[in-house]
Amino acid sequence: MSEQAGYVPVVGAVAEPQPAPEKSYRFSEQAIQELEEILTHYPDKKSAILPALWIAQREYDGYLPPQAIQEVADRLERPFVEVEGVATFYTMYNLRKRGRHHLEVCTCLTCAVMGAYEVVHHLEKRLGVKVGQTTSDGEFTLSEVECLNYCGAATVVQVGDKYFGNITKENVDELIETLRNSNEFTPADLANAIVRLHIPERTAKK
């Protein structure tokens, strides 16, 4: 093929090609077994991308660095970009490291009129961060999220796999204290809980 005549590449408009992420797999023996079980649920490997990303999010400390996406892509024999495209589409896949507790405050319609913004402003002051940031000690990440569909108990806050209902700016301090004293790492706990939900009891191994 001859060079394309008249084609002048636009300098500076194209992102620098990134080197391929290093291949160092971190899936544990249990994770590999879980992935094998999940693969039996679907007619093709591509369909397991979502659950596989949940496994990766657990194995990689509650978020998905490029290595995690590469590992999922390799294990499912799919291109890196395809898995990356899925991982960046869904809001529950964390592309950056989260704090030990990820506070997700619902501020959608009902919660907004029931005082969710007061809770958010209170938390911003109390934790010294803005929405979307993590505290310097890595304990809390504060986020605003769309409807969590528990509007009957507005305002609702999701932390890991748990919902906390009827939160007001008065009782939210109590929640913060309880979480500070717990030793859970909730982003990974959430991913673990979701992975376990895919596994039927008859095949689950302790």
Binding site: A112, Y117, V120, H121, K130, G132, S143, E144, E146
Partner: peptide
């Protein structure tokens, strides 16, 4: 309604 938090992202207040 209290004002929404000051956005980090200029378009959306959501994370």
């Amino acid at each position: 309604l209290p004002p929404a938090p000051e956005p980090l992202n200029p378009l959306l207040t959501l994370t």
